[in-house]
């Protein structure tokens, strides 16, 4: 299938290096300590952060703990377990956890609309929600994906491009420190092309970081002037 037309346009009319429209909104969940909605094109993700709060303990019985085995439906699918692990590790790398001893932070992320790049959108939404919750962080983490189809590097794949089965590189960076905290790839890619694709994804991350920074600054200013002295 042709993913890039001879005129150099993608299926949804974008240029190869063009990102989808992004939109962020802070304060979507009123009960949470921090929350955000993040949209990349048709992908829409909501994130809520609770904490830092007291460490809670939950008790449950393993199904093999009693004489006859209890049967329980298998909870959670592999995909969601994997993504939540990815988000957790990425966020843990930038939160200054030593400032909040004996407490835990819960991040709940839900995809409301999926059109490719959900992993990146989740990380971006989680960053915004953490910043809104006033949790000290080393840097903002932002994430973006890039792929390689029809021998063209493509930024920010949508669902159709994603399901083409080509290489898909998801990158998460700390823009200020200029470090990579997340790098995932499906399928294979020659090493010299990987560099190009990763560069493209990193550029995308930086563009998102600029936008997120703007949103947060605007939000802070708004809170401050509304509060008054």
């Amino acid at each position: 299938m042709e993913y890039v037309s001879p005129e150099g346009l993608r299926l949804d009319g974008r240029r190869p290096m063009e990102m989808r429209q992004i939109r962020a909104e802070i304060g979507a969940v009123s009960k949470a300590d921090g929350s955000a909605i993040f949209e990349m094109g048709n992908t829409k993700v909501i994130a809520a952060v609770y904490g830092p709060r007291e460490v809670r303990c939950e008790y449950s019985m393993a199904n093999f703990s009693t004489g006859d085995r209890m049967r329980k439906p298998k909870g959670g699918d592999r995909r969601s377990t994997e993504i939540s692990l990815v988000i957790r590790q990425t966020m843990e790398a930038c939160i200054l956890t030593h400032l909040m001893p004996r407490s835990q932070i819960d991040i709940y992320v839900q995809v409301l609309q999926a059109d490719g790049g959900t992993r990146s959108a989740c990380i971006n939404a989680a960053t915004l929600a953490l910043a809104d919750a006033g949790i000290p962080m080393r840097d903002l983490v932002t994430s973006c994906s890039a792929g390689y189809l029809n021998s063209t590097p493509l930024l920010d794949l949508n669902y159709v491009e994603d399901s083409a089965g080509g290489p898909d590189v998801t990158v998460g960076i700390l823009p200020k420190l200029d470090k990579v905290t997340l790098l995932q790839m499906d399928s294979k890619l020659p090493i010299d092309i990987l560099e190009n694709v990763m560069q493209l994804a990193t550029e995308g991350c930086k563009a998102i970081a600029n936008y997120i920074r703007e949103v947060l600054l605007e939000n802070t200013k708004q809170l401050e002037y509304r509060r008054g002295v």
Binding site: D33, G34, G51, P52, R53, L96, A131, D132, A133, G134, I135, P136, M137, R138, L216, L217, N219, T220, L223, E224, R227
Partner: peptide, 21 residues
């Protein structure tokens, strides 16, 4: 490391966070 307002008291520089615990 936070979103907030910069406050300066003599030599001390700190960020007063808005929305936080």
């Amino acid at each position: 490391t936070l979103c907030g307002v910069v406050e300066r008291v003599n030599k001390l520089v700190y960020v007063r966070a808005l929305r936080s615990r």
